[in-house]
Design a protein around this nucleic acid. Structure first.
Lengths: 234, 234
DNA sequence: CAGTTAATTGTATAATTGACATTTAATTGT
DNA sequence: ACAATTAAATGTCAATTATACAATTAACTG
């Protein structure tokens, strides 16, 4: 058994773009990098792919270490391979983006990494090509959320329609008509009205809704057109 | 300057899923592999990423070697990183899919690789995880072509509406209503009617159309809804 | 109990989609 | 010359969906 000689081997990293929603703004989970190069600078959470590890596996491991969470929504975003993206040594990075319920996040587990939720509008400079990764992830989020019901992954199990609308408005940085918005989301048949109300943010209170899990799984990949043409906004 | 020690370096390959359309069927350009392992078996065209080469660059290089073509439509599909996808040595692969006008393909340049166009419906067994790559590329093509005008990349500069319809029907393996189809594509404003006709395939002849390049560039990323919900077909 | 706030619900119009048939241009055979 | 044939091009109606816009209701506050 010969091996592929004369070919260059490279480091393979995973970087995670982790989105959260605090009820007002879209946020990103970033850390202060703990090792050289760029030690102490803001960075995405990442790590190297291990010898017997696939990409999904590696991404899940990294996400778990940082957030303590498993089974969260995650998808491969893009593989970044610019030869000089890491000044130290040729390193390619497979970026994953994840959507998590910010309330389920356990801060204590990640003290070690000095992780922080930062609003997308107030991001500091990030190392390497991480800003590009974030921009691309945000574009993908907008693209995908226009067609598929993925934003529910950012909300707790019980949520109100006004909360959902604030989320959509944060993602697209625009405002939607209340009446048309609720009609649209209700018409998907994905929501189940609860009997209790959320009472913190208004006098009248807004009814909670939950996802109909069966229909959600079934329609997750269907084309639902939540937003007509996200490219035309802004 | 220390390097990242204790981390495994891996081979990084590019594999190209190259689609073409012969007027009837969607085809894939595959080669007989010229080296071990799996020498002589059907394979996607690929190669290793070189030390000073980015992914796009590498993919373009590989595509050029096989087809002689430059400037063709290409996008990153997915990074495949299963630990045992290549039995010889840990190799990750960044897959690109490309759409080319099959008529512009220069066969002579690739004699060396024994390349062949094979209908998607008659694909032989492919090495490694290449079949999975093809399946994923086909899914992406269907997904994307439902929303964006990418299928024009498979046609020559001048084409007729019936030809375009046959292409869409091949991609979605279904039939569309002639009247509604032409109304839909013409309503995009992307097509410019020519004065001459294609006369080979009918007595009356069908008018040629060309893409309005300005509008095509402008609307390439817009949501145009060519196919309502590709998931619901089949 | 009046005033305030935000949730909920409704309606009319325009635009788009989907189903369906007829007319037209050009060739072929008589 | 003309009838037959073939596939292209075009038109209409009903149903659905999108958009713009306003009134009502529940629950708290003073």
């Amino acid at each position: 058994m010969t091996r592929y000689s004369r070919q260059t081997r490279m480091l393979v990293a995973i970087d995670c773009i982790i989105f959260g929603f605090d009820g007002q703004d879209l946020k990103l989970l970033v850390i202060k990098r703990g090792f050289e190069p760029e030690k102490g600078k803001w960075s995405l959470m990442g790590g190297f792919v291990q010898p017997d590890e696939g990409f999904e596996e590696a991404a899940s491991r990294i996400l778990k270490v940082l957030t303590g969470l498993e089974g969260v929504y995650m998808e491969q975003l893009f593989a970044f391979g610019n030869p000089d993206r890491d000044p130290m040594e040729r390193t390619i990075s497979v970026a994953y983006f994840a959507l998590i319920d910010i309330n389920a996040y356990r801060q204590q587990l990640s003290e070690e990494y000095r992780a922080e939720w930062i609003s997308l509008s107030k991001l500091p400079r990030l190392i390497f090509d991480h800003a590009e990764m974030v921009a691309q992830a945000q574009a993908r989020l907008r693209y995908k959320a226009a067609i598929h019901p993925i934003l529910f992954e950012l909300l707790p199990q019980k949520f109100t329609i006004p909360q959902l609308q604030i989320l959509y408005e944060a993602v697209y940085d625009t405002v939607f008509d209340k009446r048309n918005f609720s009609r649209k989301v209700l018409s998907t048949g994905l929501l189940v009205k609860q009997k209790d109300k959320e009472r913190a943010s208004s006098k009248r209170g807004a009814f909670y809704y939950k996802l109909d899990k069966r229909k959600y799984s079934a329609k997750f990949h269907a084309f639902l057109n939540f937003v007509a043409d996200p490219g035309k906004l802004n």
